[in-house]
Design a protein around this nucleic acid. Sequence first.
DNA 1: TTGTAAGCGTTATCAA
DNA 2: TTGATAACGCTTACAA
Lengths: 365, 365
Amino acid sequence: MVHKQPRMPTWSRPKGRAKIEDVAREAKVSSATVSRVLNHPAIVRQELRDKVARAIAKLSYTRDSAGRALKSGRTRTIGAIVPTLGLSIFADGIEALQNRLSESGYTLLIANAQYDQQRELQEMRSLLERGIDGVVLVGDSHSLELRTLIRQASVPVITTYVSKASKGMPAIGIDNEVATRELTRYLLDIGHVSFGIIANVPPSNDRSRARLEGVQKSLAQAGIDLKSTQVIKADHSLGQGRSAFRQLMTDHPEVTAVICTTDSLAIGAIAEARKLGFKVPQSLSITGFDDIELAGQVDPPLTTISVPAGEIGRGAADYLINAISGLSIPKSIQLPYRLIMRGSTAPPPPSRTRKNSHAKPIRNR
Amino acid sequence: MVHKQPRMPTWSRPKGRAKIEDVAREAKVSSATVSRVLNHPAIVRQELRDKVARAIAKLSYTRDSAGRALKSGRTRTIGAIVPTLGLSIFADGIEALQNRLSESGYTLLIANAQYDQQRELQEMRSLLERGIDGVVLVGDSHSLELRTLIRQASVPVITTYVSKASKGMPAIGIDNEVATRELTRYLLDIGHVSFGIIANVPPSNDRSRARLEGVQKSLAQAGIDLKSTQVIKADHSLGQGRSAFRQLMTDHPEVTAVICTTDSLAIGAIAEARKLGFKVPQSLSITGFDDIELAGQVDPPLTTISVPAGEIGRGAADYLINAISGLSIPKSIQLPYRLIMRGSTAPPPPSRTRKNSHAKPIRNR
DNA sequence: TTGTAAGCGTTATCAA
DNA sequence: TTGATAACGCTTACAA
């Protein structure tokens, strides 16, 4: 005998979720008391507190954050816009950011802008409409419109992976330019005089630009000339690293040190170098930037600059949480990078050191 | 002469944001009309529509989603909980998910659970409290409590990177077990009889387990015995791939094919193999799984299974958006994987083929 | 210490 | 076609 299933009402309200009134009724107190138990437990009598707690457990009540946000003007939500999640350096930062926020009861709204300022603006609008309490950006190339939007919303903001506040926006990260200066200095010190650079320069990538400038300035300071063909532009893929390397070495066989602005490019370059028969580091030094997981595992392991992505993420979280609660920390936070010297760099072959190089004499002292 | 700055009120409300009433006043219509222009423009007269539009532009008004959510019970927000963002396969999926959601006016709340069911549960509570309209999970190992929570909230859910609905939860992804079966079949077909497996088995990683089972079943079917020492457990890091490989080859020098359950492990294994003097693929074949960017760039390029992370992310978004609007698509979506044959695999050296192997005769048919 | 009630910004129902 | 108004669930003066 087939029984008919008890039929659901044609359209039952999607949420059978308990509300604060239900808890109040169950505990025989007012809804205000329930709210107080939730938000300021100290000011309610132990006995009632327990009753309310039991009622909450029984109904497995959770606050509806919409009502809460409407009343308080706070969403306990932070937004982040990154260029992409496809680069582990950003993914790692976001992961750390989320972990820290979660500990403090915040949730993370995330968006990616694909290095497109127009998209960034649009995502920001969407985030702002959601009423985020704070926002995390990357880098310091942002449209004026974006800045205006943030200022008008008077939402705390911090930008990451760079170290200097730009146009009043606080930052947390490393000084990319100083980092490549040190790296270049190191290569100069061990005797290199003929350089090639593989730089990822998608539009609006200020970090990469700073890295490139660090190298250029350091070389200029050492009186070493750099032809424009010694700087190859690429995106950040391994494949581009390979082809850029090939082009570089075709045009400039005299090069003994190849500086890449990301590890991916460097790893691509190493792969291609090996294929082309270069001995790294004996005849050719190659460096990266970021210190991704792979950097220490390739053969030879990559000399690179380590970027503290986790610390950046955590620091951004802490900064915003403080800023939201009124403790404004207006200054930028400069984090230390580390020059990691591994096996991909060595002094140039004897025949190629300064003595018999074509480098001009040192100009700037 | 120093003028005092006009002093801000001790505590000004953080938002100078225009509300719907302001727009209404500016346009000399009722707030209801403004709302209608925003939500059902068709039913309001052209003239008023324009007036309202102008007022909106003038005040640069945007809806406050808290009020909206409170009224409508919808937040236009999707939550996602991934094990980690540190694996590019997940980062890529999330990126695609976010892009697709963004196109449809949704924003993405993200959390990571670090392969910890307890954390997953806690993050889910937080997400649910935020009133998400749908949720994306990874894999099919989830605590009963989590399932219950989701069911009670009656929030649409989809799990990803697996292909079969488990306990009523729809899924989108590939069939990991079938994939490694095909991969193993391929290795058998080209003559391998002695296998080693490097498997990442963090707690609750069902994908990895399925991959491992696929290999085991395929080998069992071919009548090939697998000692427990031929299966090395590891996490998913490159370094672990290296050490696992070393251990494997120490215990089982007869192995001619090493199957790794992730590309990272395989790349680590290749690096170590090279260091130890193995010739890949001439004397040893190595395979991965995921087809990360690097897989095609290492030397030799890695034979692997390609997982369509982007498609998974987009598919999950589409699924949820449909489910939210009532078009329930109850079935799981099985996406095709691809076996990518590259240079890291080849027939075993002649001396090691079946003829003179120690493999038992085929049992199962 | 607790309860009552107003109001946060929006949308939808009902009347006009 | 438009306007007035009542919720939505929560927090917080203000009263008791």
